[in-house]
Design a protein around this nucleic acid. Sequence first.
DNA 1: AACGGTGCTATTTTT
DNA 2: TAGCACCGTT
Length: 746
Amino acid sequence: MDLKSLLNREQYEAATTIDGPLLILAGAGSGKTRVLTYRVAHMIEDLGIYPSEILAITFTNKAAGEMKDRIRGLVGNEVEGMWISTFHSSCVRILRREIDKLGYNKNFAIYDSYDQKVLVKQCMEELDINDKDITDREIINKISGQKDILVSPEQFKKENEGNFRTNRIADVYLLYQKKLKDNNALDFDDLIYKTVQLFKDYPEVLGFYQRKFKYIMVDEYQDTNRSQYEFIRLLAQGYKNICVVGDDDQCIYAWRGADVKNILDFEKDYPNAKVIKLEQNYRSKGNILRAANDVISNNTYRKKKVLRTENENGDKIKLYRAYSDMDEGRYVAFKIKDILARDKGKQYKDFAVLYRTNAQSRIFEDAFMKANIPYRIIGGLKFYDRKEIKDIMAYLKFINNPLDDISLKRIINVPKRSIGDSTVQKIQNFASSMEESLYNVILDVDEVSSLSKRSVNSIKKFVSIINSFIKSRDKVPVSSLIKEILDITGYLEGLKDSEEADNVSRVENLKELVSAASEFEAVSEDTSLSAFLEKVTLVSDIDNFDEDADSVVLMTVHSAKGLEFPIVFMVGMENGIFPGMQSLDNPKEMEESRRLCYVGITRAKEQLYMTSAETRRVFGRMVSYEQSNFIDEISRELKEYDTVGKSRINNFPNNVLNNNDFLWKKRSNSRNLSEPSGVSAEKDISSDRYLKPDGIREGIKVRHSKFGVGTIVSVSRNGSDIKLTIVFDKMGIKNLMYGIVPLEAV
DNA sequence: AACGGTGCTATTTTT
DNA sequence: TAGCACCGTT
């Protein structure tokens, strides 16, 4: 492989240094993925290293998948023998083989944050801890934090003997951990923690993996926490062929336990480590890169480096100070339309809107809907977090691992089968006194004398359907199992009969779950139920981000790490939002916020916009924040205010600021944007164009000014109110009240 | 057991 | 504003 011609000098050096510890400090956009993939290809092709001897750790499944694809492109199917996965997936893989040594069963469940919360609450109740003294949230954070730094419950309790409050938390930690074990479950943090414990307690297991993985690579090393660090350190002790890649300036997960020290102290951990800096940026235009350098240079705790580029300067960074959050949304929508109109080479997918908090997405959703701009939101409410999906997943989890009391409690009365809280409580008490799982108790429910006849009967019915599912578990594919559950429990029927406004979309979501399972069956080697559950619990939203779909993408700056876009809008650039309120008086947080800003800026290839608003609604209150200090940190000559519409805007006194439709209309008229909607005052609902109440029928097609064309799927009349559920071709399912926004019949 | 009302709280979240 | 958790009523 002629790496010399494919890589620059530093890159080449990095890709061909295979033996011994290596630290690659890779600035944003410096081609680190390229280096990593060529490095692996070189190892396999030129040096004859077996793929099975290589472990590559990434932070997201998506990054792992991409790296795998790219390596496959270079070396072919040999890539299949390699382990390329996230910390969590690698640990699960190891634990599935070895966890019985720690007293767990190999089909252990993985608890997500929802399960975790339920279990912690249960512990708090048993320990009689009032929610008002210590919140569940605080406890969860504390426990997670201790696991991150590998502190056991016992150790934590001992360390905090003097502190009553912390001692209480330690009691929860102890009980929580015991319950996890009783339920044969691990939480996310446990996946790493338990693997490290396994390595420490069973040297022969560690030895096996040390010998197996002669070569180890870790990407995004700056965002590793202590337990992840330890996991890698133990494995690498064998051969010391460890290559870590990262950028201390992009450490943005310190609040979650990531420790920049891991990367900064690498040379101390491995004194003979070679260090290579990749400072040549291939991604961004000069002005953008200089702005990024300007901002990050204000941080004190970092390795000094300056990114350089041979790219042309490009345009200056465009600033826009909107009057209001709504105006900010319209500005971005307008700009996207404007750029698309001028530059035929651009598509919707070339634009990204990056914000610091998910709550900010709404404004842009509204603006994009009005302007007919297709968009996708990454993050926020995830598919697998929806109630109906969680319900069915709880069935699956329980079927897979009947010791899982948390899932059992979730489904025992869903759909309603007259097994209420007090009944469950009685079963729980009985189970606790017998030190038994709930499932074992309900299998022999006659033993529980405190229950009424009626309850006993309901429970018996429930047990028999659950048992039938358990029987099907290993016989039928997951998708069929899901269908069985939906059918036999009456879950789907209950949903279809319900009057709830969003039941239609729930049914749709469940259909999608079935499709997801079918797809899983088609592409996976291991199609067992536990493989499906594992896959689902360990995916994130960003993993499903499809770069080819032609729509503007909206996401948090955190989610955008590792991605790049020709045109980036960083929005909400205000002191109080970005940096956030709580960062303003905390130097450490301020530095992290600044790194986040750096990550945002360096996502942009060609053009960067930074916007802020004079007033905005936050938690229902109107607030006004000044423009972000981070913008001030960018040299004057690199930025300029976008003057579009400014003169007009300045002519408006403050009291018309809320009249958004008015502003929108003015702007769109002068800029040839699509017809704005929601200007209800101008639309006469009785006009012949629009649908009349007596014309409303299920199945007919209508046009909505914001949502486009759709089909009415249900109509419910309540007095003079008419509720409509409409499936829109582009925008999905919406519930609307007739008469608010006129509908045209089509 | 099930439903509806009130009041409280509020980042970021690779897994 | 919105989502939820808890409480009291039917």
